[in-house]
């Protein structure tokens, strides 16, 4: 990649982005004038105003913090369960043979399909969204860990063995670093599915959070507020994805870049 034109391209990209979004906003505004129904389609200016109000009152950030906190907690739990299990499955053929079919039986059942049962088990509250998200994020992280461990170059393991590393050293010094890029890709996927699940589970089964807020304002027919919270959901999803990618670059600078 040539180095010097990048900066110019970045500015250029920003301009193109702004231009496209401006065209979109003007089209939206025109349609909103034409339909002339602020409940069905408020103008982008109304949405901006509502967003400003919600931000000033702090409600936008409060609800975002609640949802974000739930997701971080869920990812932590899912990782704590899935990574050791994935390491064990990747390292031991026998263990993998025992556990894998059960995983494959549960995996197609989406987290969202657990919501009715979880409603019965946990009721409406904090536990339900965390449970659903943990479940949703668990499988991609598990599969990514297994795939990462499985793909570790045998000759790296053999090289470490010839250097006299004990098994534990091989796992922590060779297998885990080698599996890390794959694990981080899986974590990115886990964040995406967890964030999708947070909205669905809060929409139905939580008294707080972004999903709840969207539904709350819909029932009040306050569409600008609905759109503000939807935008917040997108923004946090985008930031989280960027965060994981940044984490990947920082933790595994040796790994080939992926889009």
């Amino acid at each position: 990649m040539p180095m010097s034109p990048v900066a110019r391209t970045r500015v250029g990209d920003a301009l193109v982005y702004a231009r496209t979004m401006l065209v979109f906003a003007v089209a939206w505004w025109a349609v909103s004038r034409w339909t002339d129904n602020p409940i069905l389609l408020p103008s982008p200016l109304d949405v901006l105003a509502a967003m400003g109000d919600l931000a000033r009152e702090g409600e936008l950030f409060r609800q975002a913090a609640v949802s974000f906190g739930r997701m971080v907690l869920s990812l932590a739990i899912a990782s704590a369960l899935a990574i050791p299990l994935g390491l064990a499955m990747g390292l031991s053929k026998t263990f993998e043979a025992i556990v894998d079919p059960t995983v494959e039986l549960l995996r197609p059942i989406s987290g969202i399909a657990w919501i009715p049962l979880a409603l019965f088990l946990f009721g409406i509250g904090n536990v339900l969204p965390v449970f659903i998200m943990t479940y949703a994020a668990f499988f991609p992280i598990l599969l990514g860990t297994v795939a990462g461990v499985r793909a570790v170059d045998r000759s790296l393991v053999n090289a470490a063995r010839t250097m006299g590393l004990p098994t534990r050293g091989i796992v922590t010094r060779v297998v885990m670093p080698a599996a890390l890029p794959s694990l981080l890709v899986a974590l990115r996927l886990g964040v995406a599915v967890a964030w999708t699940a947070v909205v669905a589970s809060e929409l139905i089964g939580a008294p707080s959070g972004l999903g709840y807020a969207v539904e709350w304002y819909r029932e009040l027919l306050m569409t600008p507020q609905v759109m503000s919270f939807i935008a917040m959901i997108g923004l946090i999803g985008y930031i989280c994805d960027g965060g994981v990618r940044l984490l990947s670059r920082t933790l595994t600078p040796w790994a080939p870049k992926r889009a």
């Binding site: 979004m21 409940i39 999708t196 909205v199 929409l203 819909r218 569409t223 959901i233 985008y238």
Partner: peptide, 22 residues
């Protein structure tokens, strides 16, 4: 076109459901 795709992609389908119902 990519800016539009990238702007709306992170918004989960379920989040748009209330609008769709509306």
């Amino acid at each position: 076109v990519d800016p539009l795709v990238e702007t709306f992609r992170p918004i989960a389908a379920i989040a748009v459901l209330p609008l769709a119902i509306l």
